[in-house]
Design a protein around this nucleic acid. Structure first.
Lengths: 171, 171
DNA sequence: AGTTTATGTCAGCCTTGTTGACTTTCCAAG
DNA sequence: CTTGGAAAGTCAACAAGGCTGACATAAACT
């Protein structure tokens, strides 16, 4: 606690990186402010439908891995099944998600977006992609690799696997 | 909508960046998973105190700019005063935050961390800094610059000012 | 057949966001 | 010196989306 401005020499032979507390604080605040920007556009769209971020997340990952089970979704989203169920139920009721009983294991439900659900997904992801693309463009190509590298390190190790492979369908 | 895998040539003469929908999707998911990791450690600590993320955010920005007013905090946090007030009230009641009536303008309240509040702040920010430092180290120095550059672009423009300058105290 | 495990559902609670209505305190302009 | 408006705070009601606990059903394993 005495030497709060300790410098750090990186072992990669590339350059000197000063990880002062103030540098780290800026990184922390950058995450906070950027995440707000990141979710702002979808949030606006969702409001028109009476949905929230939880619905967006469910729709996103069902779209990425059609036919995924509820349990798989749970492990990705990191919420309780009760919490997810509430969101899923409204999406099924509103005809955005199709929930089909598993053939191999009838305990499971396989989830799919209906055409209506896929339409909303496109709206949401297009807005988010546009924001991401603009940020990438303004920051430049080298920045993108660094961005992804740091974020990947910031994840909990368990989550990294959901991130790297595209997420299984119904195997 | 026909050409979903459109390639993008960056105008910087540096390199070719392929911003496919899949590349952008990975960036989006990286943000989602990384933000969870980013908040996981503080969330655990806060639970012991019966506080939530809203308390953390208030404590963080009061620490960064001691003597800041409620209104300034509102513009940084982007919530309603009723929402912030509830959080602030519990922090004052619990003796973590000191709310002093302004001398120049007695309508304003200037906010400070008490020693007890500063202690919790250190706990929280130390955990978060450790996570950030580890991620930086593993990703390497070049990555850090890119990380910060992309995040800065992802913020809403209004927020960038709170990010760049350290945040005013009582001017 | 009976127990255990996996999965999904229902009910109720908490935090933290929202809006709306209102009061108090104060500064500053007419 | 009065009045208009900004800053701060309060109360009430509500919604989203976390949580835990209790429970139902299907499948799997003795």
């Amino acid at each position: 606690m005495a030497d709060r401005n300790a410098a750090n020499l990186m072992g990669r032979g590339e350059s000197l990186l000063f990880l002062t507390d103030d540098q780290l604080r800026r990184g922390i605040e950058a995450m906070f402010f950027a995440y707000r920007g990141f979710t702002a556009d979808p949030d606006r769209i969702l409001q028109d439908y009476g949905y929230g971020r939880a619905h967006h997340r469910a729709i996103h990952f069902i779209n990425r891995a059609p036919g995924t089970t509820v349990n798989n979704l749970l492990s990705i989203l990191g919420v309780t099944k009760q919490s997810l169920n509430r969101v899923l139920r409204t999406l099924v009721e509103d005809g955005l998600v199709d929930s089909r009983v598993g053939t191999r294991d009838k305990r499971e439900r396989h989830l799919f977006l209906t055409p209506k659900g896929a339409a909303l997904e496109r709206d949401l992801s297009e807005a988010q992609r546009n924001r991401m693309r603009d940020a990438y463009r303004a920051a430049g190509p080298e920045a993108v690799a660094g961005f992804r590298a740091v974020l990947e390190q910031m994840m909990d190790p368990d989550m990294r696997r959901h991130y790297v492979d595209g997420g299984d369908g119904q195997r």
